[in-house]
C-alpha cells in the first residue's frame, strides 16, 4: 500500500514542478524515479525508457509515468495511479489559468503582456526545432532530404500524420 502511495506522490510532484514540458521535465523525473530515496530504476533502465518514450507516441511524462508505474508495482493499477498523478496538477492549474484568461482576456494589461508573448512563443518553438537539429536526429544526407521535403510539404498543408508515415516508410527503404 505504501508503495502505491509513494508512486502517486512522486508523479504528482513531477506533474506539479515539471515546467516546460517534454524533455525539460527529464531531470526532475530522473531525480524522482532513479535517485534516492526510491531508486526504482537504474540509470540504464532510465535511459532505455527515455528512448522508448522517443519512439512511442504521446507526451514523454505520461509515457514515463505509465512505464514506471507498471514496472515498479508489477500491475496495471500502479500505472493508472502514476499516470493520474502526473496529469492531476497540470489539469487543476491549467483549468484555473483558462478560466482566468477567458474572463480577463480583454483587460489592457493582459493584452500588453500578450503583445510580446505572441512573437516570443514563436521563438520558443524555433528553439525546440534548433535543439533537435543534432547528430542523433540527422544521421546522414538522406535525413536532410527528408527534413526539407517534409518542411515544404507541411507548408503546402499536407497532413502531419501522412508525412510521419511516409517518412517512416522512407526510413525503412533507406536504412
Amino acid at each position: 500500500m505504501q508503495l502505491y502511495f509513494e508512486l502517486f506522490i512522486s508523479f504528482f510532484k513531477i506533474g506539479l514542478f515539471g515546467f516546460g514540458g517534454g524533455y525539460a521535465m527529464l531531470p526532475l523525473i530522473r531525480h524522482e524515479v532513479a535517485g534516492a530515496p526510491h531508486c526504482w530504476l537504474s540509470m540504464v533502465d532510465f535511459t532505455d525508457i527515455v528512448a522508448i518514450s522517443q519512439i512511442t507516441p504521446g507526451p514523454v511524462a505520461i509515457n514515463m509515468a505509465t512505464y514506471v508505474g507498471y514496472v515498479v508495482s508489477g500491475n496495471i493499477f500502479g500505472s493508472i495511479l502514476t499516470t493520474v498523478g502526473v496529469c492531476l496538477p497540470p489539469l487543476i492549474i491549467m483549468l484555473l489559468i483558462a478560466k482566468f484568461y477567458l474572463k480577463f482576456r480583454k483587460n489592457q494589461y493582459i493584452e500588453m503582456a500578450f503583445s510580446t508573448l505572441r512573437p516570443g512563443i514563436l521563438g520558443l518553438i524555433a528553439a525546440a526545432a534548433l535543439s533537435l537539429m543534432n547528430v542523433h536526429n540527422f544521421v546522414d544526407k538522406a535525413s536532410l532530404a527528408i527534413f526539407a521535403a517534409v518542411f515544404v510539404a507541411c507548408l503546402c498543408r499536407i497532413h502531419p500524420i501522412k508525412l510521419i508515415i511516409v517518412s517512416g516508410i522512407a526510413g525503412l527503404l533507406l536504412y
Binding site: I125, A129, S143, V150, I164, G171, L172, Y175
Partner: peptide, 19 residues
C-alpha cells in the same frame, strides 16, 4: 529502428514549418 530513423528529421521539420 529504420522506421524511426526516417521519422526523426521529419519531426524536426514539422516543428519548424508552422512558424
Amino acid at each position: 529502428e529504420s522506421f524511426f530513423k526516417g521519422i526523426r528529421p521529419a519531426v524536426v521539420a514539422l516543428i519548424a514549418a508552422p512558424l
